[in-house]
Amino acid sequence: MSVLLHTLSAAPSSAAFKDCLKVLQPGDAAVLMGDGVYAAVPDTEACGALLATGAQLYVLDTHAQLTGVTCTAQGIGLVDMDGLVALSERYCRQMAWY
């Protein structure tokens, strides 16, 4: 069941990022944006913690490119802005972490 769409713009070192990890659950989707895209870097603590939540994970492609995150972990899909709109159609509520 689709529950919450999280947009995670906070850096992995931030309190907001850690708080988001506490509430992410299977059925949720999370889109990494802004400084949040660094959590898509493979084999990092933040990436491992995100994957362990069981949520559907995505990274916004333009933000990943702008920040130089060209290699993203398996299990984290690339999504463009059109894809983010499509996710917002599926999930009726959003939580923005920044």
Binding site: S9, H63, M81, V85, S88
Partner: peptide, 26 residues
């Protein structure tokens, strides 16, 4: 939108989101 357009990517992303949403018929 709670962020400045000259700090970070969020404000610009919001405008792009709006354009995409309109293009999808919303």
């Amino acid at each position: 939108v709670v962020s400045s357009p000259v700090s970070g990517l969020s404000s610009r992303s919001a405008a792009e989101f709006a354009r995409c949403a309109i293009a999808r018929g919303h």
